[in-house]
Design a protein around this nucleic acid. Sequence first.
DNA 1: ATCATTTATTGAAGAATTTCGATAAATACG
DNA 2: CGTATTTATCGAAATTCTTCAATAAATGAT
Lengths: 91, 91
Amino acid sequence: MDAKKAEKISKALADPNRLTILKEIKKSKSCLYCVDLNNTINLAQPSIAHHLKLLIESELVTSDKEGRNVRYYLNNKLLDEYISFLEGFKI
Amino acid sequence: MDAKKAEKISKALADPNRLTILKEIKKSKSCLYCVDLNNTINLAQPSIAHHLKLLIESELVTSDKEGRNVRYYLNNKLLDEYISFLEGFKI
DNA sequence: ATCATTTATTGAAGAATTTCGATAAATACG
DNA sequence: CGTATTTATCGAAATTCTTCAATAAATGAT
């Protein structure tokens, strides 16, 4: 992973609501629907959509459509690559 | 590590110049002087000082004074804690 | 086909971040 | 002491990010 990609992922992680979304994805046993976040996160719907978009653009989260719902998944592989990048800073 | 702390660290990592600083700390074999960064990073001195301050406030980087220089170190322990926090998102 | 539900987009306001010039503070050197 | 070097702080401008209301788009249900 290059620094530019790591920067984008760091930015995706640099917001409390996006961290909450990742926690909810984990809690939901591998996926969740966007609509479920409206109960968990105290933000207007367009704001949640915005945060999901940033997470997807960072590729930390993937999605697929199921009818009119969207399911979200964590990209474990990319998270591992990001972690490896960070390990590279260690002495 | 709680989410608030992780957010702060993510923010510290969410800038190309700060990632460069961390890389330089690594390259310098465990420490470096602030003044060395002026050659590596194309920013005015107050900007570099600002980025170093954010890294130190996140506690990802520690420092100690040596005469009029300051040495910077990576906080390996905190980086590991951050990585553990991220691992917590994995399925 | 109509209506309801879920998600996405647009545009704008406010907040936070980045950057720099100017300047101050601290320390080393002669 | 006076000067040079290194780092920190202040204040302002520019940019980026967050948030929301309004609205659109897509799909499901009746």
